[in-house]
């Protein structure tokens, strides 16, 4: 659990993070969104003491971080910085093994962990271990940066726009991977992004920041349905709201009984995908399959109800 308690950071008297308070529950993903310069990075960097707050306190599992030596605190927290920040003079393997080395893991453990992570991110170890960062594509560099942050199996992971340089396909894959890793290891993730779509997909909670202030801190459904201020509403995009709402749930959670014509849709797809497919194929309903069996149907009528503003 990360408790942020009326934290303030001023540079030359100008508040950059202004009295922000929020509690990030353990084993959840918190997505921090906001326009450029709104203080997202600064807020994130106060959690691992890279930035010293002007006032306020931050506690991790109840312990005030001011009581922990900065370098010890940071070794416990994974940090993927904005732009990968890989060491250009070290190979991919050396980069990923950096924190485990600081923690004095054995050579064999470090090596095994490097291979495990490279495989997780679909980079063939035999091919990529000994490459230098300059020999990787931008997207590969970013993935190695995230792998490095995960190397020592931290309980907390801070990520600053980790998927910015990825193309939509790889980005979607990386987001899925992050969700999988987060669920498997129960990591608490604080993720900065300025992509609302990403925040809605990944975040259990979304923190919306503007000019240093925390405007809203709530689950995606609530941020979409009940934006705290006009600014939050603008950030979500007024015309996008119903679709964003649909993208939050899977077909499986809203099955109707009955049958329909045409190709079936997978139960794991989001309602948004279903809506899009129905419109495109000109049907008013479609069958839904799960593990190769038809389990029910999804209809435009039902989707229209689910896309309406929550009451």
């Amino acid at each position: 659990m990360i408790e942020i308690d009326s934290i303030v950071k001023t540079y030359e008297g100008v508040p950059v993070v202004d009295a922000v308070s929020m509690t990030i529950q353990p084993h959840t993903i918190c997505a921090v969104v906001g326009t450029s310069g709104s203080g997202k990075t600064t807020l994130l960097r106060m959690i691992n003491r890279l930035v010293t707050p002007t006032s306020g306190t931050i506690r991790i599992d109840g312990e005030d971080i001011r009581g922990i030596r900065p370098y010890e605190l940071r070794r416990r927290i994974g940090y993927a910085i904005q732009g990968h920040g890989l060491f250009p003079h070290w190979t991919v393997a050396q980069n990923i093994g950096a924190v485990p080395r600081l923690l004095k893991w054995s050579k064999a453990d470090i090596s095994a962990r490097i291979n495990e992570l490279l495989e997780l991110f679909q980079l063939d170890p035999s091919q990529y271990r000994d490459r230098f960062p300059s020999e990787l594509s931008g997207g590969q560099q970013q993935r190695v940066g995230v792998a490095r942050a995960l190397a020592a199996r931290p309980n907390i992971l801070l990520m600053d726009e980790p998927f910015g340089a990825l193309d939509p396909v790889i980005r979607a894959k990386a987001q899925e991977d992050l969700v999988a890793i987060q669920q498997r290891f129960g990591t608490t993730v604080v993720l900065v992004t300025h992509d609302m779509e990403e925040a809605i997909y990944l975040g259990h909670n979304i923190a919306v920041m503007d000019a240093g202030k925390l405007l809203q801190f709530a689950p995606p459904k609530q941020v979409i349905g009940r934006p705290a201020t006009p600014f939050v509403q603008e950030l979500i995009g007024t015309s996008e709201r119903p679709f964003r709402l649909l993208s939050l749930s899977k077909i499986a959670d809203h099955l109707e009984d009955g049958d329909a014509d045409g190709d079936p849709l997978p139960a794991t797809a989001t309602l948004r995908d279903a809506y899009s497919e129905l419109l495109w194929s000109g049907r008013s309903a479609a069958p839904v399959e799960k593990d190769g069996r038809l389990v029910g149907r999804v209809s435009l009528d039902a989707l229209a109800r689910l896309a309406a503003r929550p009451q």
């Binding site: 890279l50 370098y71 010890e72 070794r75 940090y79 910085i81 732009g83 920040g85 060491f87 924190v99």
Partner: peptide, 14 residues
């Protein structure tokens, strides 16, 4: 490169 120094600090190097 500033990001490299930043990353070094962020991962807990003395």
């Amino acid at each position: 490169s500033a990001p490299a120094v930043d990353a070094a600090r962020g991962m807990g190097m003395t």
